[in-house]
Design a protein around this nucleic acid. Structure first.
Lengths: 200, 200
DNA sequence: TGCATTAATGAACAGTGTTCACTATTCTTG
DNA sequence: CAAGAATAGTGAACACTGTTCATTAATGCA
């Protein structure tokens, strides 16, 4: 059955990543398997292993696509406002909403660890940096005179908080009564943190 | 082979949880399996399912033990300082160090989701509240006049941040250069957030 | 036209969680 | 004390998982 369909390695890779994303959306992380991905693109498991080293590599590409979407969702929000604080608030909410609407992909992005303690490839790390860069700009506006190293760290401090709130919030580990909601918590968090950041 | 060894249901449960923790420490999350747990306590898989509804229930008890240890590690630190800010800083660092030294158990605690979207049992939620309570006390000292609802939320805002920094930091998703370290980031984060919290 | 190349297959392996008919031991009753 | 009821414990079986690799079959080239 060789060369039946004219799909290059790259085409099959793209098809597999797209199929995996569909399965993740429809059946969650536990619903994903190599055989399901292969079947849904009209190939068998063996072909998947001709094109990816293993499932972890496929998931890495899925996560790369998620990271791109996440970045787009956040930075689109940033453009709307000129005030950096408002910008950061709506970026944080965009992060939350993306996580809520794509919970399986979002949690895969952060729960997936490469085996052996393998490091993430450079092109993937670069994507992470790009996301942080989007958050960094408004912070630089707030504190234009502080050195870049400090803004770089503040970016990570702020975004860790937003991330943590989404993570614990979506998995019901914040023990929030119905009385207040996660959106308000995140907004208040960003406000409080930025007040401290602007103090110097 | 019935009633060979005189272990009650509760004893077998405790043995299984202890065995699971050992396996987690030695072989990580992926190294854990029902058969391994059963074997290491001298029973077969079937017995495990006589005593637990399923593996998820066993993991819930493992996570409960982790949460207890985490609570102890944090609150022990709190007692050392009288200044609430110093208290919260060293609690945050204790959280980080526990996560670093028990990475498998820590990540299981937060990655494990009950199937179907089942809710966490009340006794487990109570444990989460207890951990938050420990963080809440120093916050109340900082702002004694603010209403409890607000302190409750601030507790969750602050701790989400600490949690997020540990989560992203330990999985190398903060893209920190070697130039600065996670400890310093967490300390600075707590400082900045508390400055904002104290502003009112 | 025949042959070398290689895309694609799918059976096989060792593992997973979970179930349940069955066995072997103990407790209870006559 | 013997017979039977109750039940602790077993482990084979099922349907799944990721991964490998000898085999098959379609293609490009000589």
């Amino acid at each position: 059955m060789a060369r039946r369909s004219d799909h290059s390695r790259e085409e099959i890779q793209h098809m597999a990543v797209a199929a995996a994303i569909t399965i993740l959306n429809e059946q969650g992380v536990t619903g994903l398997s190599a055989r399901k991905v292969a079947k849904s693109i009209g190939y068998t498991v063996g072909t998947l292993y001709l094109v990816f080293k293993n499932l972890d590599e496929l998931l890495l590409y899925v996560n790369a696509a998620t990271l791109d979407e996440l970045h787009q969702a956040i930075t689109e929000e940033a453009k709307i406002h000129t005030d950096p604080t408002l910008s950061l608030k709506s970026m944080a909410l965009a992060y939350l909403h993306y996580a809520q609407q794509n919970s399986a992909r979002w949690s895969l992005l952060f729960s997936h660890q490469l085996p052996d303690g393998q490091l993430l490839p450079d092109w993937f790390e670069q994507k992470i940096i790009t996301v942080f860069d989007g958050v960094m700009k408004p912070l630089q506006q707030i504190q234009p005179d502080v050195n870049e190293q400090a803004v770089l760290q503040a970016t990570r401090e702020l975004w860790s908080g937003v991330h943590g709130a989404c993570d614990l919030g979506l998995s019901n580990k914040l023990n929030m009564g119905a009385e207040f909601e996660i959106e308000a918590l995140i907004e208040s968090f960003v406000e409080n943190y930025l007040f401290g950041f602007a103090k110097v």
